[in-house]
Design a protein around this nucleic acid. Structure first.
Length: 502
DNA sequence: ATGTGC
């Protein structure tokens, strides 16, 4: 058997791209990293493997803790981590969801081609930058009245479309139709709502952005046609989350877990993994509040979509839907937990496992935590919207602003390998602090424009440095692993035209 | 990610 030592951990190669940290000591389950050898080496460059091992201590974790190929260290639980935890006897962990609840990505397709926008990149980027608030702090596209915030928390995209910020067909092209029905806005604190109030329809900062892209490659023609994509077509990618509202909510519940469930915390190897026991009042409250933040983030992306449509309409002097075909392709959430039913069994060594090869399988209700991981349900799955059920769920994975992005479809192996999940991005290679030492924002911006005709406009040069292409892993390699494993299959590749960010 | 902190 092949083993490999990475960052002091002895990993066992189960098969191509699957590396296992065997169960030992206090681990409840093994851990697995889905990566090529080069990505595994990069994943070993920070605390990801230790954090993944720590996650196996979470009470009720029902199968190996998983790290996707783009994994890197995060708060307590790795970004790129998937943790499936028993929803009756286990726990739910805010750190395994992430501070930015329902950080996610959506893609809007268009009927425009690259020839239509070539030469007009600066006009377009200026107009988008003007229309869409970005950067740290407040300022949204609408005022956050009590009715607006309540509608967004309770009903997500449904609320936004009813208010005129979208079209009926947008609803079916979001996970859960853009509305978590188990949301409980009454469990979101006043302080969190106050922070979200004037951020409705805003990108935020960090790795969040809106990018106009052109489709450069189509790998699966039939699927691409179902998604409305063809070579040279223009698409719009929007990456953002629940802003200060989700951040405050995560913080609120981490503090409450420390106060009310200190005993559980004492048994965990890292306080940042703080979790509320399943069935406790606090677990119910966090789950309901998280659902409301999920809805808020969806409404936020919907408001930004509206602004992007209006802006394209003005720049190209046309109706964005009727003339430009700006329909939502799909919206994915990549920082959430959700109650899902999966079949769990035991493997040859007696460890809990999923997959066709495991014995004594039974259906269990789980809190599937996807933190920096994208749901990737295959063709035929009842939770894939009807319009895409024949080909599989669209999976949108942004790369860096110099590298472009991918559209995948949920692969046939995803349910048995990764609880129906794949990667969410290129994955950072270095910290923000280190990035600012290595890069200067203005230089990065000039290089992108002069070298690759990519027009970037940002509120802050520091943000451009923190998000420089060199700060990220190789998106092509991340996607190769996903495609090889059959968890997310390549459909199309895009390349940036222009980008606005915080 | 974040009114850029414990």
């Amino acid at each position: 058997m092949t083993t490999r030592e990475v960052a002091g951990f002895e990993l066992r190669k189960v098969r191509e791209h699957v590396w296992e940290l065997p169960r030992e000591g206090d681990m409840n389950v093994p851990a697995r990293v889905l990566a090529s050898e080069s990505l595994l080496e990069e994943i070993g460059g920070d605390d990801t493997l230790q954090q993944l091992r720590n996650a196996t201590h979470l009470p009720g974790i029902a199968a190996p803790a998983l790290c996707m190929p783009d994994g890197h260290q995060g708060y307590g639980f790795p970004v790129g981590g998937v943790g499936a935890i028993d929803a009756e006897n286990g726990c739910i962990s805010p750190g395994a969801v992430g501070y930015d609840i329902n950080c996610g990505v959506r893609m809007v397709r268009t009927d425009l081609t690259y020839d239509d926008v070539r030469g007009r990149e600066e006009e377009l980027v200026d107009a988008l930058f003007e229309a869409i608030p970005s950067g740290l702090g407040g300022g949204g596209v609408i005022g956050g009245t009590a009715d607006a915030i309540e509608g967004a928390l309770e009903r997500g995209v449904e609320w936004a479309v009813e208010e005129g910020y979208g079209v009926e067909s947008d609803l079916a092209r979001c996970e859960d139709e853009g509305r978590r029905s188990d949301a409980r806005p009454e469990y979101v604190s006043q302080k969190a709502m106050d922070r979200g109030r004037n951020q409705m329809g805003s990108l935020g900062s960090g790795n969040h952005f809106l990018e106009v892209q052109r489709v450069t490659d189509v790998f699966r023609e039939e699927v691409a046609a179902e998604y409305g994509l063809e070579e040279d077509g223009i698409v719009v990618l929007i990456h953002c989350g629940s802003r200060g509202l989700g951040h405050q909510t995560c913080n609120d519940y981490l503090r409450r877990i420390e106060q009310e469930h200190g005993d559980l915390l004492d048994d965990l190897p890292d306080k940042e993994l703080a979790a509320a026991p399943a069935g406790s009042q606090l677990a119910e409250e966090y789950y309901g509040a998280m659902g409301a933040c999920i809805n808020f983030a969806w409404a936020n992306r919907q408001l930004i979509t509206h602004q992007a449509r209006e802006t394209f309409g003005e720049v190209f002097d046309a109706d964005p839907i009727e003339d430009l075909g700006m329909e939502l392709l799909y919206d994915v959430a990549h920082n959430i937990a959700k109650k899902e039913t999966h079949e769990i069994g035991v493997d040859a060594e007696g460890n809990p496992a999923v997959g066709d090869a495991v014995a004594d399988r039974e259906e269990r209700e789980l809190y599937v935590h996807r933190k920096g991981a994208t749901r990737a349900f295959p063709a035929g799955n009842a939770d894939v919207p009807e319009v895409y059920r024949g080909v599989g769920q669209p999976v949108i994975i942004p790369g860096s602003m110099g590298a472009g992005s991918y559209v995948l479809r949920g692969g046939d192996e995803s349910m048995s390998v990764s609880f129906g999940s794949t990667a969410h991005g290129a994955g950072r290679l270095m910290s923000r602090t280190q990035a600012k030492q290595e890069f200067w924002g203005g230089d990065v911006q000039d290089d992108l424009e002069d070298g690759q005709q990519i027009y970037v406009k940002a509120q802050s040069g520091a943000t451009i440095a923190e998000e420089a292409p060199g700060v990220y892993k190789d998106i092509d390699e991340v996607i190769r692993v996903s495609d090889d494993l059959g968890i997310g299959d390549k459909v199309a590749r895009t390349f940036p035209v222009c980008n606005i960010k915080g």
